[in-house]
């Protein structure tokens, strides 16, 4: 079995109100020196088989079709 981790983040220039709220909350907790915070999503996906190249291309297709909205989001894929 192959394990993949997909990380989806907002593209640069896309406003992230949730990240901003978290940024403010960290400062109000007394953490100094917190710069910009951007919130994203992580998906851990298990795939049958052992072909890592195929797994990677399948996962990329999943990102393009569903996991990420490429109008506003970027994604990265890590295969374990």
């Amino acid at each position: 079995m192959i394990k993949a981790r997909v990380t989806v983040t907002l593209k640069n220039g896309v406003l992230d109100p949730q990240g901003k709220a978290i940024e403010g909350a960290l400062s109000s907790l007394g953490f100094d020196g917190v710069g910009h915070v951007r919130q994203g999503k992580v998906f851990d996906i298990e795939l049958d088989g052992a072909d890592k190249a195929k797994a990677e291309s399948d996962i990329k297709a999943m990102c393009e079709k569903l996991l990420a909205n490429t109008v506003i989001e970027n994604y990265t894929v890590a295969i374990d």
């Binding site: 896309v14 406003l15 109100p17 949730q18 909205n69 109008v71 506003i72």
Partner: peptide
């Protein structure tokens, strides 16, 4: 409709959250 690609753009969380 935007998620289906039938209209351009995306709808994100309200800035007020």
């Amino acid at each position: 409709l935007v998620e289906a690609g039938l209209l351009p753009g995306a709808l994100m969380r309200n800035t007020s959250l």
